[in-house]
Amino acid sequence: MVAEDSGAYRLTLQLDQAATITVGRLGSFAFKAGQYAYIGSAKRALSKRVARHQRLAAKKSGKLHWHIDYLMSHPDCHMIKQELFEAGKECEISAAMARRRGVTIPVEGFGATDCRAGCKTHLYKLPERKMATE
């Protein structure tokens, strides 16, 4: 049985400046400035989970529970986009992100410590976009 308000989500984040961030028990890591994509899921209350991420990103305060919370609570990190997907797609979306050209893995295991599909991470550093010259 699948809960009505369940599914996967992808958050696009902007880290304005490079930062060293401690991610719970995972450890401290150097994050480069730029855009990141995080893929997560919720078996129930998907809308509440995403709203919680939005509040944490905006207010920079709240209980830090998941790996993504540590990044989102950093003062230079901002959520710039969210996308929702049907349940059971988290690892499929993560695998597709890993195959994209120029995408890198900033921290192995980030958001994927309970992943049964073998994902190395659920957080990806997106490639820098080149500005079009006029």
Results as ranks from 00 to 15, higher is better:
residue 15 L to H: 11
residue 26 L to G: 06
residue 9 Y to M: 09
residue 81 K to I: 00
residue 73 S to A: 15
residue 12 T to E: 02
residue 59 K to D: 07
residue 116 R to H: 14
residue 35 Q to G: 04
residue 84 L to G: 03
residue 89 K to W: 12
residue 15 L to K: 11
residue 115 C to F: 04
residue 98 A to H: 08
residue 46 L to E: 05
residue 77 C to N: 03
residue 36 Y to M: 01
residue 15 L to W: 12
residue 101 R to N: 09
residue 43 K to S: 14
residue 53 H to T: 11
residue 118 G to N: 09
residue 77 C to Y: 06
residue 68 I to S: 02
residue 94 S to D: 06
residue 45 A to K: 15
residue 21 I to H: 01
residue 55 R to H: 02
residue 67 H to E: 11
residue 109 G to M: 07
residue 85 F to W: 15
residue 87 A to S: 14
residue 43 K to V: 10
residue 49 R to H: 12
residue 74 H to V: 04
residue 40 G to N: 03
residue 32 K to S: 11
residue 88 G to T: 07
residue 42 A to K: 06
residue 36 Y to I: 01
residue 80 I to N: 01
residue 63 K to L: 11
residue 107 V to F: 10
residue 106 P to Q: 06
residue 120 K to T: 02
residue 17 Q to M: 02
residue 109 G to K: 08
residue 98 A to C: 04
residue 82 Q to M: 04
residue 114 D to S: 13
residue 42 A to D: 07
residue 71 L to G: 07
residue 24 G to F: 14
residue 23 V to I: 15
residue 11 L to W: 02
residue 65 H to F: 14
residue 43 K to G: 15
residue 18 A to C: 04
residue 69 D to F: 13
residue 70 Y to H: 15
residue 111 G to T: 06
residue 40 G to W: 08
residue 25 R to D: 14
residue 109 G to Q: 09
residue 51 A to F: 05
residue 11 L to K: 03
residue 65 H to D: 06
residue 34 G to K: 00
residue 35 Q to S: 03
residue 105 I to G: 05
residue 13 L to V: 13
residue 114 D to H: 14
residue 120 K to I: 00
residue 84 L to P: 01
residue 90 E to K: 08
residue 60 K to F: 09
residue 34 G to P: 00
residue 17 Q to E: 13
residue 98 A to V: 00
residue 85 F to P: 07
residue 16 D to I: 06
residue 10 R to P: 00
residue 76 D to T: 09
residue 103 V to Y: 14
residue 60 K to E: 09
residue 15 L to S: 12
residue 69 D to E: 11
residue 48 K to L: 14
residue 49 R to F: 11
residue 67 H to K: 10
residue 44 R to C: 08
residue 29 F to W: 01
residue 96 A to V: 06
residue 27 G to E: 09
residue 40 G to Q: 09
residue 71 L to T: 07
residue 54 Q to P: 02
residue 29 F to K: 00
residue 25 R to C: 05
residue 50 V to S: 01
residue 74 H to R: 05
residue 103 V to W: 10
residue 19 A to W: 11
residue 15 L to A: 13
residue 28 S to M: 06
residue 117 A to R: 08
residue 44 R to Q: 14
residue 59 K to V: 07
residue 120 K to D: 07
residue 27 G to K: 09
residue 31 F to M: 05
residue 100 R to V: 07
residue 61 S to G: 02
residue 26 L to H: 11
residue 120 K to P: 02
residue 51 A to W: 01
residue 116 R to C: 05
residue 62 G to E: 05
residue 82 Q to Y: 02
residue 70 Y to L: 06
residue 44 R to P: 00
residue 115 C to A: 08
residue 53 H to E: 10
residue 112 A to M: 07
residue 73 S to F: 04
residue 44 R to L: 06
residue 39 I to V: 15
residue 45 A to G: 03
residue 78 H to T: 13
residue 22 T to S: 15
residue 33 A to W: 05
residue 80 I to K: 00
residue 25 R to M: 08
residue 108 E to Q: 07
